[in-house]
Design a protein around this nucleic acid. Structure first.
Lengths: 232, 232
DNA sequence: GAGTGTTAAATTTTCGAATATACTTGTTTT
DNA sequence: AAAACAAGTATATTCGAAAATTTAACACTC
């Protein structure tokens, strides 16, 4: 029982993705097949398939005949990603406000509530608590733009989210800037403006929210770069 | 000699992609591994890798334990794709006009010239001639947005182009609507407005260009649907 | 000592057999 | 006849050995 109906490749993909996002494998770190084969207890085929998928999604980089490595991070990519997110998500939010029905509103209310609950009980020292918070945060933002009516935009938004989430602050000590923000207020304001169908206000608040996030991520990324350099 | 340095998987990927785009495999047609294995003379591994990549890019659909098939087309997807293209590419053009340097201008002039040459000598009865025209058309449009300064946007644009190019009219007889347009004039006008740094005009012309394209593709797609239904 | 070729080791990539899953066809049961 | 079941067939998926390629180590020349 509890036997997953997914193929092995899909399972490996999920685990690998989680471990890259979680920092088990550092950016630019080589991903040796033999090593991963042992770690996951699978053959080459599903491994390769998972890595190929992750490569197409931008989480992994592949060099012909030289294997795979975790895709590197850079300040440039972070800025690009966050700028593009703001651009695409504000447009998607605008359309969602225009077309959103009751289910859309309900989904926003629901995900915001769940996010607030976790925000209140969060424990920064517990990785699992941090992950739950991150997931609920993501769910809320996806809910906001879920009525855009464009599957293509949805896919783009998900991919960009994935790309930016890699810059999350991994070390608890570096999360002070993030935590100093009044996240409950920021998200509530975005939700209220959206539900009130105040397009301009909602988009402005969302953009500002992401600009703050970008700033916070940039700061943390710089600090991490510094730490990495110092550690050499 | 002439031995490709690419891996087998990359070669299979390129061929498969070309054959899907070219209509060798019809939309929604199952892609049987044994059949492809024979056709390309390779083993399962590179085949699977190529199919996985194409799946991530949206050209192929995969069902767990049931293999792969060519991703289906639909009027809904066509509209979504073209709308999103207009949205993203006009923004990218705007930024390119803002940041574009001499190399950007030169690239526009060069690709437009090459496109015009092929337009003049085009032979609708020759598939190769049609493909060359399509490639040069693509090159011009990529050149327009090549100075956006955003690698993420670039990637999105390329993926959306790929998605929409599948709706190209494949049968020569159905290209009348496409050919009736004054393509030389349309593209020249876009290039001129861009080089003159007239952002609003350039974006308006580009959007209009894509709206016409969308219309033409919709027409052809409907016709093809009708033909497919009638043929049953 | 810097450069150059040569062998050995490590690693990726590919192949085809082996396995697991889905589909088909025919049979039985109700 | 419809539904449920049961082989048998077709197909996708996975494995581990084999082949191809890159990297490392080492000796040799200039």
């Amino acid at each position: 029982m509890a036997k997953s109906s997914h193929s092995l490749a899909a399972q490996v993909y999920a685990r690998l993705r989680q471990e890259i996002m979680g920092g088990t494998f550092a950016p630019a770190e080589p991903l040796r097949l033999a090593q991963l084969k042992d770690r996951y207890g699978v053959g080459f085929s599903p491994l390769r398939e998972a890595l190929t998928r992750l490569t197409a999604e931008g989480l992994v980089a592949a060099e012909p005949m030289r294997g795979f490595c975790v895709a590197p991070l850079s300040l440039e990519d972070l800025r690009d990603t966050m700028d593009t997110r703001i651009f695409v998500e504000t447009a998607a939010l605008k359309r969602s406000i225009l077309h959103g029905d009751d289910a859309w509103e309900a989904r926003i209310v629901a995900t915001l509530h769940a996010f607030k609950l976790q925000l209140a009980r969060r424990d920064e020292s517990d990785p699992e608590s941090r992950e739950t918070l991150e997931n609920r945060h993501r769910d809320f933002h996806f809910a906001l733009v879920s009525a855009s009516g464009s599957a293509r935009m949805q896919a783009i938004i998900e991919n960009l989210y994935l790309g930016s989430a890699r810059y999350r602050v991994l070390r608890p000590g570096d999360r002070s800037a993030y935590l100093a923000r009044n996240l409950e207020e920021e998200h509530t304001a975005i939700a209220e403006a959206s539900l009130a169908r105040d397009t301009d206000q909602a988009c402005a608040l969302l953009a500002e929210h992401y600009r703050r996030t970008a700033e916070s991520l940039e700061l943390a990324h710089r600090r991490q770069l510094g730490a990495a350099t110092a550690a050499q």
